[in-house]
Amino acid sequence: MSSPEDRLAALGLALPEVAAPLAAYVPAVRSGAHVYTSGQLPIAAGELLKTGKVGAEVTPEEAYELAKVCALNAIAALKSVVGDLSQVAGIVKVVGFVASEPSFTGQPQVVNGASELLGEVFQGAHARSAVGVAVLPRDAPVEVELIAEIR
């Protein structure tokens, strides 16, 4: 059986360094059998990949890809707490925030970028919310957080 790290490698993905917090919080925290990540932005190599509202400056397709980056950052935050991703029994819940222009209603399809990646890496489904918001930190188009169950 392959590990989550093996599945990431098979997808051609490597975990990034854990993004430094933008304020007074930690990237992830364990409580009992669960790890809760803070909201993760689409940051790569220390840079926000895109800014703006989905449905205006950012296309839904771009936002879908950015949600994948958020999920990859969330996995890195998760690993920073558990050490070995094989300790993750599954992803329990994902919350995706999409900074949207007012008439945009495709938040679920955007957050599918994160959900589909997490489903491939951890081989399972999770509960989820996909929420449209007016603005996110640093004018990011997408933010994703998750709750994982640990063995």
Rank of each mutant, 00 (worst) to 15 (best):
V135N: 01
E17H: 08
R151P: 09
G39M: 08
P137E: 11
S80N: 14
I147D: 09
I147L: 07
V35A: 08
S38D: 00
V111I: 14
L117I: 07
F97Y: 10
P102I: 05
P102Q: 04
L22V: 06
R151W: 04
E101P: 01
P4C: 02
D84H: 04
A77W: 03
P4L: 05
K93N: 10
V35N: 11
E101M: 00
F122T: 09
G12C: 14
G96T: 06
I91F: 05
A9T: 14
Q123G: 03
Y25L: 01
S86N: 08
I147R: 08
A99N: 10
Q107W: 07
I75E: 05
V121Q: 00
N73F: 13
T59K: 05
Q87A: 13
L72I: 07
Y36F: 15
T51P: 13
E61W: 02
E5M: 14
F104G: 07
Y64T: 13
L8D: 14
L78F: 13
E116R: 11
L15K: 05
T105F: 03
P42T: 02
G46E: 02
I91P: 10
F104C: 06
A140C: 02
A56F: 13
L13K: 13
G52A: 11
K79V: 10
A76W: 01
A23M: 14
L13M: 14
L66D: 07
V81A: 04
V81M: 01
A9M: 07
T51D: 12
I43G: 03
L49Y: 09
D6R: 12
H126I: 10
E145R: 05
A28S: 15
A63T: 00
V121N: 05
L49S: 10
R138M: 09
T59Q: 06
A127E: 15
G39F: 12
T51K: 15
V29G: 04
P21T: 12
